[in-house]
Design a binder for these strands. Sequence first.
DNA 1: CGAAACGTTGAATGGTTTCAACAAGAGTGG
DNA 2: CCACTCTTGTTGAAACCATTCAACGTTTCG
Lengths: 257, 257
Amino acid sequence: MTPAETSPFTRKLSAFVDLSEAELAVLARLHGRRRSFVAGRDMAHQGQSDHAAYILSRGWVCSYKIQPDGTRQIVDFQVPGDFLGLRSVLLRTSDHSFEPIVDIEAVEVLASDLLEAFAHTPRLAAAVLWAASRDEAMVVEHLVSIGRRGADARMAHFLLELSSRLALVGMGSREGYDCPLTQNHLADTLGLSAVHVNRVLRQLRESGLVTFQGGRVSIHDHDRLAELADFDPAYLDQTGPLLEWKGRPPLSGRQPR
Amino acid sequence: MTPAETSPFTRKLSAFVDLSEAELAVLARLHGRRRSFVAGRDMAHQGQSDHAAYILSRGWVCSYKIQPDGTRQIVDFQVPGDFLGLRSVLLRTSDHSFEPIVDIEAVEVLASDLLEAFAHTPRLAAAVLWAASRDEAMVVEHLVSIGRRGADARMAHFLLELSSRLALVGMGSREGYDCPLTQNHLADTLGLSAVHVNRVLRQLRESGLVTFQGGRVSIHDHDRLAELADFDPAYLDQTGPLLEWKGRPPLSGRQPR
DNA sequence: CGAAACGTTGAATGGTTTCAACAAGAGTGG
DNA sequence: CCACTCTTGTTGAAACCATTCAACGTTTCG
């Protein structure tokens, strides 16, 4: 399989864990029914338990929580190659909602198939567990961002994180990437008002750091941006899971860049 | 075993999952070497990989991240009965540091023992996984708090969450609990300055909602406090993990209060 | 074409931080 | 035992960052 044919999901896992032919085959068989969802309409509601999990193949999704007063906080985003609702499947609880940012395509993964695959291919289980752990690390970094960084650093950090994530699945580079988010999405993500997001973006643009316009993020000065954001991609680049699985040798990861 | 003899950890798990005698026995055997740590000195440093996990039996710990500019963000707290460094063990990565708030006592859990127990007692694995998932839900709620709640609501929410968690292991009630945190801890937790924490506490006290003084949290008006905080304990009270483990019947949880 | 969502900008308001000063208690060493 | 320091808590005043309100331009879409 050439890289062009591999799914973003396979591509992401392969970047960190050397999977064997057999394991790749199990991964391929895992892919079930293709499903589409239209932008804006929720996929699952807060509290509702939906037993389906998906691997996102095209489009962007955000997961968020709404408060009684109407304000919302976006917890994180899923881009192609990311798991969606993994915890809902494993634990039958879904404590937040999912909204497709644009029309999306996803492959359904049945809980039974997943557990079956895990049982036969422990390294695959470890790889998926690693991906879940990486997601959690992103939420923690998000928490730090909102708690202890100013609005400009928050924005810079967020845009850089997206850059790294998208580059991993071949959807962007150090120079920039396409991004379907509105300023409202950014506001709900960063804990700011939409108005202030606009001002911060202007300031970053006028400083020659980044431009966020017309669905495109153009990074003009990656280094100064990373410095402003205090961005250390270590939490994204961790060498794969070193979990030893009952006597088997630990998974070998590739060297992070 | 009478409740008085059970460890806080067992007590916590039992509150959500009906464990059999055999499973309880495995749990008890899991308990390894007792270790103590003194207040203030870090248990493990950011980035350093320490393969030990612990179950906290006495005292409080916080996990946090420090930024280059010296500010820190506390991600969450561990109280008796909580796991400590579970992810470090499973994935050999530790992306934040642990600081004992007071002198603590913890039981070491070896990764090998844990995986062994999981293999023989899948329901135990599910129970621990459930606990980990609950921790993650708390981090998400924390994120929402910092992102979308005012300082007073944040404080109220945090104090109420602690109340629920401590009540579960018999260390507090609706009326209050002992709390060794300083106002600095609160500030680093809630993303506020220490000075402002002081003002917020005064305001809450003068409104007759809650008093935080001399290592004691006294909740005077639980209902009004919960309303201010927009506190919905659902994310803490979830009925246990419903994970079906390869054909076995799902775990039965007790009814949440 | 009209409506609705998104983006943009100014001015006023306000929540939070910073700076500064001081009080109280704990721990330290002379 | 006392001075000394360090941490924690407390309060006031000024400065600042971010929000709110309001108005308007632009684009999209039915």
